Computed example of a mutant assay.
Amino acid sequence: MRRVVVGVTGRPGSLTALHRAAAEARLHDAELRVVLAWQSPGDELGSRNGLGPSALAQCRAAAVERLREALDTAFGAAGPGIPLAGLTVRGTPGAVLVDTARDPDGLLVVGTGSRAALRRLVRPSVARYCLAHAACPVLAVPPSPLQAELESVHRRNAWRIPLDPRELAS
């Protein structure tokens, strides 16, 4: 294995995939390629309707900053301790990841994210796209169990449901 490619968004689920990808790269003495896919506002429709070069440059700069923040959050100043390349690529996440991981000797690592029924209807699964189209093996990393608990707390707060202190004891 020469290269491990991982997609990140900066959300906690993608950071779990990033840590797993770094571990795989360390294990196989491979380069870690961290990819953040970005799209202009309104997807391609937005760029055809007059989104100028300066707005696209601002979108790209924001994507670069999100990638830096994700890497800093995941590894801190010390870094992952392996060769790392960060890429920001304009396009849909699944297609960008599959294209970046086109080497059959590599490994593509993706987070599965939360797959609630409503989310599946609104947003297609990047992991499923990668599993169906990648030329290399794909490792789909489920979210951390702590992520599910965090989402539960957010839902409680959004719906203003009081927390029963007895739930904290379990």
Rank of each mutant, 00 (worst) to 15 (best):
residue 2 R to Y: 03
residue 2 R to S: 08
residue 3 R to N: 10
residue 3 R to Y: 02
residue 4 V to D: 02
residue 5 V to C: 06
residue 5 V to F: 00
residue 7 G to F: 03
residue 11 R to I: 00
residue 12 P to D: 13
residue 13 G to N: 09
residue 20 R to Q: 13
residue 27 L to D: 07
residue 27 L to M: 05
residue 28 H to Y: 07
residue 32 L to P: 07
residue 36 L to F: 03
residue 39 Q to F: 04
residue 40 S to C: 13
residue 42 G to Q: 10
residue 45 L to I: 12
residue 46 G to L: 07
residue 48 R to G: 09
residue 49 N to A: 13
residue 51 L to D: 08
residue 53 P to V: 09
residue 54 S to H: 14
residue 55 A to T: 11
residue 55 A to Q: 12
residue 57 A to K: 12
residue 58 Q to M: 14
residue 60 R to N: 13
residue 62 A to R: 15
residue 62 A to I: 06
residue 63 A to S: 11
residue 71 L to W: 06
residue 72 D to Q: 15
residue 74 A to N: 08
residue 74 A to R: 11
residue 75 F to H: 12
residue 75 F to A: 12
residue 76 G to V: 03
residue 77 A to N: 13
residue 78 A to F: 06
residue 78 A to K: 15
residue 84 L to T: 15
residue 84 L to E: 09
residue 87 L to M: 11
residue 89 V to S: 12
residue 89 V to T: 15
residue 92 T to D: 12
residue 93 P to E: 10
residue 96 V to T: 14
residue 97 L to W: 06
residue 99 D to S: 15
residue 99 D to L: 04
residue 102 R to E: 07
residue 106 G to K: 02
residue 106 G to S: 04
residue 108 L to G: 04
residue 108 L to M: 05
residue 108 L to R: 03
residue 111 G to K: 07
residue 114 S to P: 00
residue 114 S to D: 10
residue 115 R to P: 00
residue 116 A to H: 11
residue 116 A to R: 09
residue 119 R to T: 07
residue 120 R to C: 03
residue 123 R to A: 09
residue 126 V to H: 02
residue 126 V to Y: 02
residue 128 R to V: 00
residue 128 R to Y: 02
residue 129 Y to M: 00
residue 132 A to C: 01
residue 132 A to P: 00
residue 132 A to N: 10
residue 136 C to Q: 07
residue 140 A to V: 05
residue 142 P to C: 02
residue 143 P to Q: 09
residue 144 S to D: 15
residue 144 S to V: 00
residue 144 S to I: 01
residue 145 P to R: 09
residue 147 Q to R: 14
residue 148 A to I: 06
residue 149 E to M: 13
residue 150 L to V: 12
residue 151 E to D: 14
residue 152 S to I: 02
residue 154 H to G: 07
residue 156 R to F: 07
residue 157 N to K: 11
residue 157 N to F: 14
residue 158 A to Q: 09
residue 160 R to P: 00
residue 164 D to A: 13
residue 165 P to D: 06
residue 166 R to S: 15
residue 167 E to G: 09
residue 168 L to M: 08
